[in-house]
């Protein structure tokens, strides 16, 4: 009995160890999937300064 549960513990911990390799960070992609939701890396919002510059350059197209 003892040895059995010991084996079980060993097996379980091995499984945990194996499965933990499936974490999203290590695979470089999401491992869970939710329909209709983008699950990739998050993009950054532009800063106020970047936006101002874009508006200025937009005006340059006026000719």
């Amino acid at each position: 009995m003892r040895s059995k549960s010991a084996i079980l513990v060993i097996l379980l911990s091995a499984a945990v160890a194996v499965l933990s390799g499936c974490k999203a960070e290590e695979q470089g992609r999401p491992t869970t999937y939710e329909k209709g939701v983008y699950g990739g890396k998050a993009d950054k919002k532009l800063t106020g300064e970047q936006v101002r510059s874009l508006r200025h350059r937009g005006g340059l197209q006026r000719q």
């Binding site: 532009l46 300064e49 970047q50 874009l54 350059r57 937009g58 005006g59 197209q61 006026r62």
Partner: peptide
Amino acid sequence: RLAEGKLPLCAEMCATKALLAGDGDVVSDI
């Protein structure tokens, strides 16, 4: 380019300024 504060190059280099890009308000004003 947006992160560099610049608009799409295709529009910025358009020969006749036919192709406009940018903030929707600015573009539709022009």
